[in-house]
Amino acid sequence: MERYKDIIPNFEAFKAVLHRPLFDCCRINTLKIERAKLLERLDEKGVGWRIFDWYPFGLKLDVQSPGKLLESLLGYIHIQEELSMVPPLLLDPRPGEVVLDLCASPGSKTTQISQMMNNKGLIIANEPSLSRVTPLRSNCERLGVLNVAITRYDGRNFPRGSFDRVLVDAPCSSEGRERRGPGVLSRSNRKRSLDLQKLQIGLLKSATRLAKPKGVVIYSTCTYAPEENELVVEKVLDDARLERISISGLKECPGITEWNGETMKGDLSKCARYYPHINDTGGFFVAKLIKN
């Protein structure tokens, strides 16, 4: 963790916040219920809620085991980390488009994309592991999703397609989840990140290949390691350009352009880094690319 001392602003505050657990968060599933009606139901039950400053369908909940709420069982809400709702928002899918979610399970982002498309168009949700297809399917069904088809390819060799938008929410070292499962950061190291980097580069290159010209590619992880973030994105900058990320109500830090004494492409500052002590969330990285 100390290796991030020079890239994470106000490092002491960062370390201090890691011991504070996170609020449970959920997304209102407008495929099954209107927002106002859901809020009314929570009030009726005495469940405390607060809407995110940056996304009207995201809620912080004040209740024990929110996954056991009837509203969750019936698919009116989906328990989802706050920052996990960022990539679909940046992907900005429209009804009728064809979207690829290359690393889909358990489907929090897939189902959010479906909601944004109002169940119209097509999402290919790819997940190579059979055991991880089960929760993906189950979440799609519970949330009333009707425009998702599931495939099981190795994302690096996904065979073909010409997609309006592609999401790569890559497997990562998950350092940003420290407030959910303490110990992740202390187990993390550069070697593990470099192993994951090979897979991440393969996935992002594949995503860039599968996007239409001018198509949008979102790359995200829940980790801080530059080896898994900027150093992955850098590998596709010959085929796509970065777009600067700014979400009103959510403070991002710029992507880094120097690491281990080496300078990277300046454009990488357009990526967004989210830190737990700045928005009182987990940690997250996201890049928005437009294919040439």
Binding site: V98, N119, K120, G121, L122, I124, V133, R137, C140, E141, G144, V145, L146, N147, V148, A149, I150, T151, R152, Y153, P159, R160, G161
Partner: peptide, 19 residues
Amino acid sequence: WMISASELPNLSYEALGMR
């Protein structure tokens, strides 16, 4: 299975919409 999409790319599928 029931799916809302009008066109499906030529891929090998594990699931098509909702059972």
